[in-house]
Design a protein around this nucleic acid. Sequence first.
DNA 1: CAGGAGCCGTAGACACTGTCTACTCGCCCG
DNA 2: CGGGCGAGTAGACAGTGTCTACGGCTCCTG
Lengths: 213, 213
Amino acid sequence: MSEVEDWGGSGASGGGTGAYGGGTGRPLRDRLVDVGVELVAREGAQALTLREIARRAGVSHGAPRRYFPTHRELLSAIARRGFDGLGARAAAAIGDGTAPPREQLAELARVYLAFARDNRGMYELMFRHDVLESGRPGLRETSLPLFGVLAALVARVRPDADARLIAGALWANLHGIAQLWLWGSLQLATGAEDIAPLLRSALDAHLGPEADR
Amino acid sequence: MSEVEDWGGSGASGGGTGAYGGGTGRPLRDRLVDVGVELVAREGAQALTLREIARRAGVSHGAPRRYFPTHRELLSAIARRGFDGLGARAAAAIGDGTAPPREQLAELARVYLAFARDNRGMYELMFRHDVLESGRPGLRETSLPLFGVLAALVARVRPDADARLIAGALWANLHGIAQLWLWGSLQLATGAEDIAPLLRSALDAHLGPEADR
DNA sequence: CAGGAGCCGTAGACACTGTCTACTCGCCCG
DNA sequence: CGGGCGAGTAGACAGTGTCTACGGCTCCTG
């Protein structure tokens, strides 16, 4: 009963946003990011206007400037929440790490795609590197720990090969599947309605077929 | 001496833009698209302002509206040039189609990545589906013939498997590699300086290792 | 306790964007 | 010759991100 089975619909209930803590209590800096996370989940990445975020946070349009000198930095802070959420979901997917590495990888991949599906706007924002402070250290590096876990698992599954290379190719494959699927291109080209076979094909390709099937 | 070997640098000489036919002679509609292609190649996707394109075409900012009712449609017309260019490069890569299918696929993949590298801004634009008329028929379908060729070749290499599925996964992998490499993430994560091993790993994964190596 | 300094947010200006609307010019056809 | 019409101009409008001057508030210091 994996999470990746109802990719056809456009449901976006999941997330992990939640909380959205108490109105005016928290410091403005955090509130702005909260509002941004909420807004991108509800209306998409193009709704993340500086002025709109300020409006929904109940402050004037000049206020964010004290904490985020530029719009891009505010967007980057919002995107970082996305990377953190993805990391948390990935960590939860791995669990205690006692499962066979091949299964952990499959679960990791499922979680990755489920994240992209459930947090479509956020996922798009996370890879809008033209609008993010991707040059600055900190944002691009956010996914490094996750990639390290991925590479370590790959190394256990395919001890013969260059694990980082395989992990890189696999990561790129997951990203490509998520993005092209969100765009609808993969459905159009392959005629598929379900993303699971595509994912299985990619996993089998990079890691070899799963043992127990 | 494949094209995909100097991905380290940021040279963007290649292209295929060329032409840029004579100033005011051609009809305005085409000139606007020409200017857009030129502009995105030189200054990136964020420079494709409606008013800037009109300015460089030597007309007032209201003029484009007669041919492109909205900014998105002008951008879509520019992006279509990108898809056409990619298709042309792919067709040239395949040549007369007498080479072994596995080699044709490798060449196709190389050309795809080279296109993304040489036409960085255009490539980004082509997948900015939030800003393109991706809902309208015609744009997303542009890549269908290319995908058909890809799937046919895959079918010859792996007659046992579901060719469209494999082709979809492979396509997604190419797209993911291109995008994450352009962003710098893959270099950062894997430590690689050259994209070729990554590409070979992906091709081997989806198609099986190449015969003559 | 008085006073000043520093932080936090406001308000307005500025250049720029995309869209919409009125208009002018010049050509072609009847 | 004259009217219609396609093609492009010019201006208005709401909205954006950035910058700057200003107001109020707290809190620390003498």
